[in-house]
């Protein structure tokens, strides 16, 4: 039963991978990477059930936390072209300079 679910999960991962490779926008790719990360977390849980070693779930917890950082970094860098500035400050600067998109 868990094996079938795991295989279905890999099928979903393959489809997300196809979306990641096709793009076309950067945002599509970020969304796909994030979705792929969620699926990997669940896959690791299922897989550690399959091999009967609960250590895999520790890795799943770690990925659930780490994946977020990568996504935020890509978005922030793509938007502001800097790792340096606080997000709140950027919003303030936009408001001050009257640039409203």
């Amino acid at each position: 039963m868990i094996f079938v679910v795991t295989i279905m999960m890999t099928a979903a991962m393959a489809m997300i991978l196809a979306r990641l490779l096709r793009g076309p926008e950067l945002y599509d790719r970020v969304l796909a990477v994030n979705s792929f990360g969620t699926k990997t977390v669940l896959f690791l849980c299922l897989f550690s059930f399959l091999i009967d070693r609960p250590d895999g779930i520790d890795i799943a917890i770690l990925y659930a936390l780490m994946n977020f950082i990568g996504t935020i970094a890509v978005l922030k860098f793509f938007r502001y072209r800097s790792l340096d500035i606080a997000l709140a400050q950027m919003a303030l600067r936009r408001a001050v300079s009257g640039e409203d998109r």
Binding site: M8, A11, A12, M15, I16, A32
Partner: peptide, 15 residues
């Protein structure tokens, strides 16, 4: 099984 089905549905939608 239901979760896996929804996962597939979501993936097809993404694609």
């Amino acid at each position: 099984f239901g979760g896996a089905v929804f996962m597939i549905i979501g993936a097809v939608g993404m694609l």
